[in-house]
């Protein structure tokens, strides 16, 4: 595989399959992107500026939303993207336990 891959047409993040230093200029999705952070093997960076609250897409599907404004070339991970699913920390926590059967 290429050292940087983009999995879906609507994706706004790319995945690195090697370690890259901050300041590296890489080619992905037809763009030359300057990485503002070091990106480790298996981690993602932004292919475009992403506003806080906007969806993050990988595999052509939504994997979460930006929790802060993210600039092109920045590392995209748990510090700036949050899940929109199973957020008990944002729920009241007083729901009845469901019936599994």
């Amino acid at each position: 595989m290429d050292k940087i891959i983009v999995l879906g047409e609507r994706d706004n993040v790319a995945t690195c399959l090697a370690d890259f230093d901050a300041g590296s200029v890489v080619h992905a999705a037809g763009l030359d992107v300057a990485l503002s952070d070091a990106i480790q093997f298996g981690h993602k960076f932004a292919l475009t500026d992403i506003a806080a609250g906007a969806e993050i897409c990988k595999y052509g599907e939504v994997i979460g939303v930006a929790s802060v404004d993210i600039a092109i070339g920045q590392h995209v991970h748990v510090h700036n993207i949050e899940s929109v699913r199973a957020r008990g920390d944002k729920a009241n926590g007083d729901q009845e336990r469901g019936d599994k059967s």
């Binding site: 199973a86 957020r87 920390d89 944002k90 729920a91 729901q95 469901g98 599994k100």
Partner: peptide
């Protein structure tokens, strides 16, 4: 899937 999501909410946790 909903059952697991409801369990996370019932327990007041962020699954991450």
């Amino acid at each position: 899937v909903q059952w697991f999501e409801d369990e996370a909410k019932r327990n007041g946790v962020d699954m991450r």
